[in-house]
């Protein structure tokens, strides 16, 4: 059970969990962040205050603490048990990343000249049309670089899932280490590097695709 092939296989299983957490978190937090961004820019003061406070709390506390809070919180507060570990770690990641993304979206939207919104308004477009037809691509162009930073951080943050005993790739390697086999722990780096390498190429491709939008 300690030869290269079987270690690789075990690590791959752990990496599967890592990828699962990564993709689901990404798919949910990207739209959730946009909704939060609209909330934090709302003209309705109570909503804006609530959203900005949430963002402050989430960005101001360690992610590890949030994972623990989401997993044990319902039990400690209300005595509710029975949540599965993976969904609750994903919930914690989505909340955390949606807050970070929301700030990127907000910065992006606010950096788009007011004249773009007004040009749409004067042409009789609806707010939704203005957002999706006029603003969105310009926004995307601006936020791909900061977003890619956060997304790459997420790849590595998934390893925090092990604080509530989810067996992702680092956890698998640590189990080997506990049994006296150290090298799989370093070997995990290769998996992360390859994955981040692919993401980097993808983001570079996206940036090139959108470079025709001069901002």
């Amino acid at each position: 059970m300690t030869d290269f092939a079987s270690v690789t296989l075990e690590l791959l299983k752990g990496f599967g969990v890592t990828c699962y957490i990564f993709f689901i978190t990404l798919a949910l937090s990207l739209p959730a962040g946009l909704i939060l961004a609209f909330g934090s820019m709302s003209r309705f003061t109570p909503l804006r205050t609530v959203v900005r406070t949430i963002v402050w709390v989430i960005r101001g506390t360690p992610l590890m603490l949030q994972i623990i809070a989401v997993f044990y919180g319902p039990y400690l507060l209300f005595g509710i048990t029975g949540f599965d570990r993976v969904p609750s770690v994903i919930a914690a990641f989505v909340i955390n990343y949606a807050c970070y993304f929301s700030e990127i979206y907000r910065g992006g939207i606010e950096s788009i000249p007011k004249g773009q919104f007004e040009a749409g308004q004067v042409l009789g477009m609806t707010k939704t049309q203005i957002f999706f037809r006029v603003i969105f691509l310009q926004l995307l162009r601006r936020i791909v670089p900061p977003m890619s930073n956060e997304i790459i951080t997420l790849v590595k943050d998934t390893s925090l899932a092990r604080v509530i005993s989810i067996v992702e790739i680092i956890m698998v390697a640590q189990n080997f280490a506990r049994a006296g086999l150290i090298w799989p722990l370093f070997y995990t780096g290769v998996f992360y590097l390859l994955f981040v390498g692919i993401l980097t190429l993808l983001f570079r491709f996206l940036e090139r695709k959108m470079s025709f939008i001069k901002v």
Binding site: G115, Q116, E118, V134, Q138, F212
Partner: peptide
């Protein structure tokens, strides 16, 4: 309305 700064859609 035609704006001073054009405000064309760059994309």
């Amino acid at each position: 309305l035609v704006f001073q700064s054009f405000n064309l859609f760059p994309h």
